[in-house]
Structures are given as structure tokens and as C-alpha cells.
């Protein structure tokens, strides 16, 4: 039943990503056009626009949420594909371990960066 648990959350994560990454894509790809969360004009991903979003708690919080959820969804999906190659049990264990450690490491890195930049941007704005 453990795999049922993982897969249930894999699907639930997919729905969360659909919403959050959909918003992310609209902001990043269409922000230069719509100026949605990109008040400084030019490209949505310019340094000023990035810092504007980083200073907002909503974005920092959703970045961290999206980071965790997407890492789970993506790495579990990769694990699924790898497990369908008839690996030896030891290799399956190794894959799980590597993806878990790698995923947690990237989650830690991304979360740290989001918080540091949020603090700096919020402080700069006063």
C-alpha cells in the first residue's frame, strides 16, 4: 500500500503544480506583456521585476511550496520511469536514496535562496 500513498500524493501534487506552475508560467512568459506582477516594464524576468516579486511574501511562500511539490512530483515520476526498467532490488533502493537526498538538497538550496532574497528585497524596500 506504500506505493498507493506515494501515487496518491503524486497526483495531488500534479494538481497543485497545474495551478501554481500555470500562474508561474503566466507571470514569467506573459508578464512582459500584461505587466502582471512586473511593474517595472521590460521583461518579466528582469532583475527589478524579480526583486519586486521576491519582496512579496505571497511569491516567496508559493515559490517554496511549488519547489517542494514539483520536486516530489518530478522525482517520483522519474523514479516511476526508472522502476519500470526491471532494476535489481539493490538498484531500486539506490535510486530511491539518490533521488531522496538530491531532492532534499535542492529543496534546501531553493528554500534558503528564496528566504535570503525575500529578506534582502523586503529590507531594501524598507
Amino acid at each position: 500500500m506504500r506505493e498507493t500513498k506515494y501515487w496518491t500524493w503524486h497526483m495531488a501534487a500534479g494538481v497543485v503544480i497545474f495551478l501554481l506552475l500555470g500562474l508561474h508560467m503566466l507571470v514569467m512568459h506573459l508578464g512582459g506583456w500584461t505587466h502582471l506582477f512586473a511593474p517595472f516594464g521590460g521583461e518579466a524576468v528582469s532583475r527589478d521585476n524579480s526583486l519586486f516579486r521576491d519582496g512579496k511574501l505571497f511569491f516567496t511562500a508559493t515559490y517554496i511550496l511549488l519547489l517542494g511539490v514539483a520536486l516530489y512530483h518530478g522525482l517520483y515520476g522519474l523514479r516511476t520511469i526508472l522502476f519500470e526498467l526491471t532494476l535489481k532490488p539493490a538498484a531500486e533502493k539506490a535510486v530511491t536514496f539518490i533521488l531522496l537526498v538530491g531532492g532534499l538538497g535542492l529543496f534546501g538550496l531553493g528554500t534558503w535562496a528564496a528566504i535570503v532574497v525575500h529578506a534582502a528585497a523586503a529590507a531594501a524596500r524598507g
Partner: peptide
Amino acid sequence: LFYFLMHIVVTSLR
């Protein structure tokens, strides 16, 4: 996924 893993590292550099 491949893009996303790189994206985490690249954007964390900010």
C-alpha cells in the same frame, strides 16, 4: 524535470 533541476540551481544564485 531536467529544466526544473537546473532552474533551481540557476535561480538560487540570485
